[in-house]
Design a protein around this nucleic acid. Sequence first.
DNA 1: GCTCCTCAGCTTGTCTGAGGAGCTGCCGCC
DNA 2: GGCGGCAGCTCCTCAGACAAGCTGAGGAGC
Lengths: 224, 224
Amino acid sequence: MIRRHPLAEQAADELLRRIGAGEWPVGQKLPGETTLAAQLGVGRSTVREAVRELAGRRVLESRQGAGVFVVGTQPVEDWDRVLRRAAITDVLEGRLAIETEAARLAAARRTATDLRALKRTLAERSRAAAESPDDEYVEADLAFHRAVITAAHNLVLAELFDSFVPRIRRAMLDMLKLDAAHARHRGDQAEHAAIVDAIRAQDPELAAGRSRSHLAGVRDDLPG
Amino acid sequence: MIRRHPLAEQAADELLRRIGAGEWPVGQKLPGETTLAAQLGVGRSTVREAVRELAGRRVLESRQGAGVFVVGTQPVEDWDRVLRRAAITDVLEGRLAIETEAARLAAARRTATDLRALKRTLAERSRAAAESPDDEYVEADLAFHRAVITAAHNLVLAELFDSFVPRIRRAMLDMLKLDAAHARHRGDQAEHAAIVDAIRAQDPELAAGRSRSHLAGVRDDLPG
DNA sequence: GCTCCTCAGCTTGTCTGAGGAGCTGCCGCC
DNA sequence: GGCGGCAGCTCCTCAGACAAGCTGAGGAGC
């Protein structure tokens, strides 16, 4: 599978190289688009696309009337990659931090709609645990936990959780494959129901505590 | 600080929204440039720049002669942007989740070296609170909190905290400018020392509780 | 001397028209 | 059925024009 490299992409690479080489430090203004176009031997719109690509990677930032500025020396790190490389216990502890706080906030802020979603996803999870294949069970479990996050009404926590989801999904599927009977935690439907109860009762401390002990249990059950 | 949104950026956001909504699943081809331009009500080059930006974020990929294709539904986590746009209370609650859990783990895992770093950064913070300009005080405060994170020995939490730092720094500086005497929390040196004490005593619950109440206090002190 | 205003000259932002290069599916030929 | 060629689509690049916005110099007013 060969890959073509449009001029705009090559121009972006060249700019990235020069930035990495220190030609323009962070905060510095790049030459104007017309100047850069002449330097790189391409048209102005090609330079603009190259700059736009690096802007998408949080390396450059252009301000109309002022110029194009360096805001970082290397492309934004790929969270998925960080999480893939991190130890699974580290990931789980991150998840634990997020979900425990989310459960606490959910108990304080949940609406009637949130509660309905929690009960629905809890029932669905119960059904899937009993009769669905692994992948559907995992999705049902994730959907339930996502409903808790939603009820917390905090966009940052929601984004954090979503960024964890791919890694969590992989880890769960791996666990289920290794030891289906044990890893499915057939008994932990009760733990999930208890979290919903605490949120329903609007008891933040209880919701946080139950969420924490559930996830700590998952962590400590990990092989290795 | 108001922020302008060029058309190309708005177009990118709109495309991202539609992709997230499932209008074009992964692997699907988007309509042609001219069609998209008409749909979005912008020129062709604007569409091209929007596509190029999403290509930089690994969401789209364009192949000459074939079309533009979706390669992922979620951009490479651009945390700084998410955090910049999020409400400051949401950000603080995310930080609270991370730091509370980190304090708990730190109490359990801290080494003698960690403890020395905590004491050193605590003393430095105390000095800076008394006699340094705002920006140095902020850095000293962040360095202390980073030392707590380090003591937790969890790379995911550390990365999360680091990604929060720029936003936290900005918010702190803004607060100090608004109301220097109050916002500096001159009394909260004791709160920080108490966190170190709990970590030194290897009491996870106490460390977590003190960390939580400190940050909850910061959140509740926010103007508005 | 200081502050504020105006403006010229720069910058990026957007649109359009043109032509080049490459892919894909159709259609006729063998 | 298998193959080659072609038409029509796509993205790629450029140039030119004008709009919108920033910045610093210099003048007006105090």
